[in-house]
Write a protein that binds this DNA or RNA. Sequence first.
DNA 1: TTGTATGCGTTATCAT
DNA 2: ATGATAACGCATACAA
Lengths: 342, 342
Amino acid sequence: MKANRPSAPTLRDIAQAVGVHTTTVSRALNPRTQGQVGAETVRRVQKAAKELGYQPNPIALSLRTSRSRTVGLVIPDITNPLFPPIVRGIESALEAEGYSGWIVNTDNDPQRERKLIDSLRSRQVEGLIVATARMDHPLLAELHASGVQVVLINRRVEGVDLPCVTADDSSGVSAAVAHLAGLGHTRIAHLAGPQGTSTGVARARAFRHAVRDRGLPDDPGLVVECARWSEEAGARAARTLLGARSGVTAIVAGNDLIALGCYDVFGERGLSCPEDVSVVGFNDMPFLDKLRPPLTTVRVPHHDIGVEAARMLLDGIENPGRPARSLLMPVSLVVRGSTARR
Amino acid sequence: MKANRPSAPTLRDIAQAVGVHTTTVSRALNPRTQGQVGAETVRRVQKAAKELGYQPNPIALSLRTSRSRTVGLVIPDITNPLFPPIVRGIESALEAEGYSGWIVNTDNDPQRERKLIDSLRSRQVEGLIVATARMDHPLLAELHASGVQVVLINRRVEGVDLPCVTADDSSGVSAAVAHLAGLGHTRIAHLAGPQGTSTGVARARAFRHAVRDRGLPDDPGLVVECARWSEEAGARAARTLLGARSGVTAIVAGNDLIALGCYDVFGERGLSCPEDVSVVGFNDMPFLDKLRPPLTTVRVPHHDIGVEAARMLLDGIENPGRPARSLLMPVSLVVRGSTARR
DNA sequence: TTGTATGCGTTATCAT
DNA sequence: ATGATAACGCATACAA
């Protein structure tokens, strides 16, 4: 036997209960239009609404208004420990304004990304927070051109003036290099993130600057690009770097996962960290303090990045046409056990 | 200047282009009703639809049909590394059937949970996958009673016959105890998860059975309950356990986070693992192999749990009234460095 | 085989 | 201050 599920009460139900027209109920319940309705009527409508347990139907509302109080969260993969804290930050800021977020995972597949964003748009999301930007990203340029509200996190796009919230990559890398130089390291290498991403480029550039500023060798062989921001790609690049017998004693990894890839290669080659080689990561993802050895890394305020990105997006939704801002979030070096005096 | 964003084409646009009525277009595009339309008309309609880039409007569709091809994912906190793989599993199974999932984080707050589930329901989700079940959970009982499709993961609810997908806790704990006993440990303790959750109870019960079956002491002092499934709660319980000077040489932790709490306490007390005390976790969350020491744990097929839960839910949606099944997913012990011979 | 009419729940635009 | 009407995009009972 099917459960007897009474369908949710509508404006019409309230109207009937109170003895007024649905239009009046709508106005009485909408703070913006409440003034148009008699005070006594408002009172009775609100009472009835509460008694019936009225909840506005967001779907009907969307259909009518073409809005949804919803934004899309476009990330590569929620399985990357970087993203959950950002997502929570985003959602807490959205929630404060009565919005909510819809998460999609693109797996860095442009086709999939396009499909998912289409689906998001067909659901009338009012904006997009995008963490998958590549430097050359036609889809984002397209969206921007067609007036879709977009905020980028962690990444930028070349030649498109999109608002973004990123970590201060330059300061972070610089602090890492300073730390290693202070420990007496002179041949410092960089396992760079993919150079198709602005973050990869920014960190690599910052690395070269930092190294040069200290009068250390800016040998091209000391920078190896990783194909992806992953442990495996990091390991591959670390093998190249370490195979070249370049006398490297310290590595600035593009991010924590790449640093983990280094750990794997140290294991393979019988190198010990930090005795033989020091490593610094980037991001400070969870549980890094419990690794063997605990990873020295650059802490990034993920939650805050999410909060700021959400605020920026809501701001753009409310004030379209406002010029794009870029927010640089402060980072800090967290010294743990993976770095030691040379 | 506002971008000229042409609104998405509707059935009406196609109808106009082809010169038929919207009804005909609707039928021609709907596989189920295509037979009612002339083959030639179908062809022309489909051609026009493709040319115009028609995408059905899911909101209008929802309003009309009270469905949404959407399900709600109710989890405590996406920041817990346990959940992302499950979420991905769920989404891949949903995607295959044209469904998608909407994630909400309850933070284990019943008020918040109710609010979020209300919001999900008002968005016409066709079902719920719930990971936040407590043994006594009136809200879930309510939902079940009112005919909402629900599938539980990781947890069960007492006295309510809800379908669920869980790890085989009993086998996992049993394997952990067998492993430790095989290493010569006799005083084995259990840091149990919250006893308000079925998982906490199941693992604790399995622990006592396993210990007794081997003729080892089933001392009540050897089981300490953690207030939450967290590192901090695990540490607190570990302090209690280790403070009691009970001669414990091995610990079966309720889950990996609790095991990490043990690591913290070992650090505080100058105990070394596995020399002084062995620890086994549960779940095999990411990066455990890189801890100091690498954590021996019970691997749970998170992705598969997600896949099965989603399939079960879709099955329930398509065939309401089908009896609830409980699916037990196989686990396996992963031996690493946190356990050693006594 | 195709078209007409209606309604899902809401709000905007009129009119009263 | 309130009501009547229409429309958002779609699917369906009914008519032709």
